[in-house]
Amino acid sequence: MSNGNMNLTLKVWRQKNAQTAGKFVTYKAESISPDMSFLEMLDVVNESLTLKGDEPIHFDHDCREGICGMCSLYINGHPHGPKRAVTTCQLHMRSFKDGETITIEPWRATAFPIVKDLAVDRSAFDRIQQAGGYVSVNTGVSTDGNAIPIPKVIADEAFNSATCIGCGACVAACKNASAMLFVSAKITQLGLLPQGQPERYRRVQTMVAQMDEEGFGSCTNTGACEAECPKEIKLTNIARMNNDFFSAKLFREESIHEEQHGGA
């Protein structure tokens, strides 16, 4: 199947499931073409493993064009590999040297338990979004789309935050396994747009509360997340989130306190 001339050694984390212990297993990837994507290289390895009757290396992937956020992999010490602003599925083998040893690990975080081999459970991200990452409007809005003009700079800035693909590279890169870049991106997107204003100070509280519950670490502003984010989400999002959070907690009268503990 392969048609290239690169030969590589892979050190891959294999782990049957969250309950069993894992270990590194070494594989050879032979006749790899530099035009292959990283995942296509793994496809080649998996095809030969399957034919031998071994279980293929499990990893999450879907769109393979860098937008669905399903692929992950911590490759040679970098989430999504050594290239900036690309996901693993868009990382091509020309970024590696013939004969190189590549170490492939899953995202490591308490909040991302391992599913199998290199795949992790990122449902914590969904739960954070469910806690408040939306504008509460029902279907059937009749306000014209152009009724509220939004300055281009604001719309663009909101878009920059909205491009987050929810892959979890920020958590994987952060030495504290903090999810703040992810969380702040949604808070910033909706916090900038006029549509998001009514719930702005509620949203930041509910989302941060859920983030804390999931067991992510705290931000220490090292900026590793920003450097590794495949969509180049900026660290300033976190500052915006902090600002909104402290405004909400210290200066606003509305509170999420009662409903969280009183129950509705």
Binding site: K11, H78, P82, E105, R108, T110, A224, A227
Partner: peptide, 18 residues
């Protein structure tokens, strides 16, 4: 708390921009 958020570390740590 931050240590607890990542009890298992990485085998390879590359030089980061941080």
């Amino acid at each position: 708390k931050n240590r607890k958020a990542r009890p298992v570390g990485y085998a390879v740590q590359a030089k980061s921009d941080a």
